[in-house]
C-alpha cells in the first residue's frame, strides 16, 4: 500500500470550512431562486441579498466574502445560482455586474461590523443595532455599486438607474433585514452553526 504514502489529507478543520463556504454559497443560490410576489416590482424580488447578509453574519468578514466569491464562480461556470436559476459568465457581466460584484464586499462589511473585526463572536449575542448597522451599510454598498453597473452597462443616468433598479426594490430589503435578525434570534438555529 505504499502508493498511499504521499497523500496529503485536507485537515479536518479545513474540510469543515470548505463545506461551510459551499453551504452558504449554495444557500445564496437557493435564495436567489426564491421569488416572493411583491406588489410594485417589475421583476421578481428574490431573497439573494438575505443570503449575502447570512454569509457575513455566520461566517464573518473573510470566510463570508469567500463564500460569496465561490457563489459567483459557481454561477459563472454554469451552476444555476443566479437569480431565477440562470448562470454563465454572460450573466455575471450583464447589467447586474455591479450588484453581483458588490456582494462579496457587502458580506465582508456585514461580517466586519457584526463581529467587530476578524475574530468571530457568537452572532446570537450581537446587539440588534449592530446587525442593522452592518446590513444597512452592506445594502448601501450593494445599491451604490449595483446602480453604477446599470449606469455604465446600459448608458443611463443615476436617476434613471435608481428608478429602474433601486426605487421599487429597496423597501423589500428592509423585510430581508428583519428576516435576517429573526433568523439570528431564532431558537431553532442549529447549534453547530454557532459553536465555532
Amino acid at each position: 500500500m505504499s502508493e498511499h504514502q504521499h497523500v496529503e489529507l485536507v485537515a479536518d478543520r479545513t474540510v469543515d470550512r470548505l463545506v461551510r463556504v459551499a453551504l452558504f454559497a449554495a444557500l445564496l443560490g437557493v435564495l436567489s431562486y426564491v421569488a416572493f410576489p411583491y406588489p410594485l416590482s417589475p421583476a421578481p424580488v428574490t431573497l439573494q441579498v438575505l443570503g449575502v447578509f447570512l454569509a457575513g453574519i455566520f461566517l464573518g468578514p473573510i470566510w463570508g466574502a469567500i463564500a460569496v466569491v465561490v457563489y459567483l464562480v459557481a454561477g459563472a461556470i454554469g451552476l444555476p445560482v443566479f437569480s431565477m436559476g440562470q448562470s454563465g459568465i454572460g450573466v455575471l457581466l450583464s447589467e447586474r455586474v455591479g450588484f453581483l460584484v458588490s456582494f462579496p464586499i457587502a458580506a465582508a462589511m456585514t461580517g466586519a461590523i457584526v463581529h467587530g473585526g476578524r475574530s468571530l463572536v457568537d452572532p446570537t449575542t450581537v446587539s440588534t443595532l449592530r446587525l442593522v448597522l452592518g446590513m444597512t451599510l452592506a445594502t448601501g454598498v450593494i445599491y451604490l455599486l449595483g446602480l453604477i453597473g446599470f449606469m455604465i452597462v446600459l448608458s443611463m443616468g443615476p436617476v434613471e438607474a435608481f428608478v429602474v433598479a433601486g426605487l421599487v426594490f429597496l423597501p423589500a430589503e428592509v423585510a430581508k433585514m428583519a428576516g435576517a435578525i429573526a433568523i439570528v434570534r431564532s431558537a431553532r438555529l442549529p447549534r453547530s452553526l454557532i459553536d465555532r
Binding site: L27, V30, L31, V34, F36, Y38, L47, L50, L54, A172, V174, A175, K176, A178, G179, A180, A182, I183, S186, R188, L189, P190, L193
Partner: peptide, 15 residues
Amino acid sequence: SLHRRIAVFGIVVLA
C-alpha cells in the same frame, strides 16, 4: 407578514 415569512422560511432551510 413578508418578514415573518422570510424568517420562518430562512430558518428552516438553514437548519
